[in-house]
Amino acid sequence: MRDQELIGRVLAGDPSAERALYDAHVDRVFRLVYRMAGDVDRAQDYTQETFIKAFSRLGEFRGEAALSTWLGSIAISIALNGLRKVKRSMEREVVLDEALTVSRTTAAAEPDLKERLAQAIDDLPEGYRAVFVMHDVEGYTHEEIASSLGVHTGTSKAQLFRARARLRKSLADFVKE
């Protein structure tokens, strides 16, 4: 209800309502995109982009889902698109870097469980990682995830199941210990 009031005021051109709407939702958006990006600059950019887009499209919000879910869907879409491009850019840089530097191998210390888990989560396929982060890390419901990602609830559940299975497999040696 409060969101509906705020939306009405924003659409009527009330700048204080824009700020109130931002304040009400920015933490959740920033947390989600930071979890996905793992980098404060990118997370800030994705959050800013989310609100810029949301304010420009607020008139299209029909209230079928909660405003937080709608913002989440914009945020996750921006973060995933951005991270895809970053990944492509990183791959290109690695090729460039390999051409410029002499390869060297160093004996890395055995990472602890948290590092291994973080690496395993990073290595999950994009869709699995998004669902895992949203559900197991940020506490979104499957309904919210499904709405944000534009998939069925069953798909969200299946992807979470597969994500956990992959993580179990990746961390199998830790589990045995």
């Binding site: 920015v26 800013q48 973080a118 989560i121 895992f132 890390v137």
Partner: peptide, 27 residues
């Protein structure tokens, strides 16, 4: 897994004012 995963990319404090200023500037 859920317990350990809470530390995955643990977010810092939200830089509200900084982001709000940037949003306003870009708009």
């Amino acid at each position: 897994l859920r317990d350990s995963a809470r530390d995955y990319n643990a977010p810092p404090t939200t830089p509200r004012e900084e982001m709000w200023a940037a949003i306003q500037a870009r708009r």
